[in-house]
């Protein structure tokens, strides 16, 4: 089974708990990330409203917290997300969730070496 992380970026508040929970879990130094929050905004649209979306993106260091998930826990980022907008599950299950609500993004990370 393939696992992934589904993120509802409509309600991602950009708290960066995912980044720091990950760094603590894996001992990642400053200047490096296992999941990294990318920030698009705020910029004003023609209707006067602002676009501002925050996207936590797993990096090449992300192993989906293999040790934690083997012990029945959530990945550290998912567990600590303040807005509760991250889910860890099989891609099959998450894909179903993805259909039910817009403005979500599904990541299927795996550490790679090039």
């Amino acid at each position: 089974m393939t696992f992934g992380i589904l993120i509802d970026y409509e309600f991602c508040t950009g708290c960066q708990s995912c980044e720091v929970a990950c760094k603590e879990e894996h001992g990642i130094p400053v200047g490096q990330w296992g999941i990294h929050l990318l920030d698009d905004g705020p910029w004003e649209c023609s209707d006067g409203k602002f676009n501002w979306n925050k996207y936590p993106v797993p990096t090449r260091l992300c192993d989906l917290c293999a040790k934690r998930t083997a012990a029945g826990k959530q990945p550290s980022c998912v567990h600590h997300c303040l807005a509760g907008v991250m889910q860890y599950d099989t891609v099959a299950n998450l894909a179903k969730q993805l259909e039910t609500k817009p403005n979500q993004v599904l990541f299927v990370p795996k550490p790679y070496k090039y």
Partner: peptide, 19 residues
């Protein structure tokens, strides 16, 4: 770690306690 038993925070934790 955050405690999922907590009725309000449910395991969520901000960076100030995570560190």
């Amino acid at each position: 770690e955050g405690d999922e038993n907590h009725p309000i925070t449910n395991g969520r934790l901000c960076v100030r306690c995570l560190t």
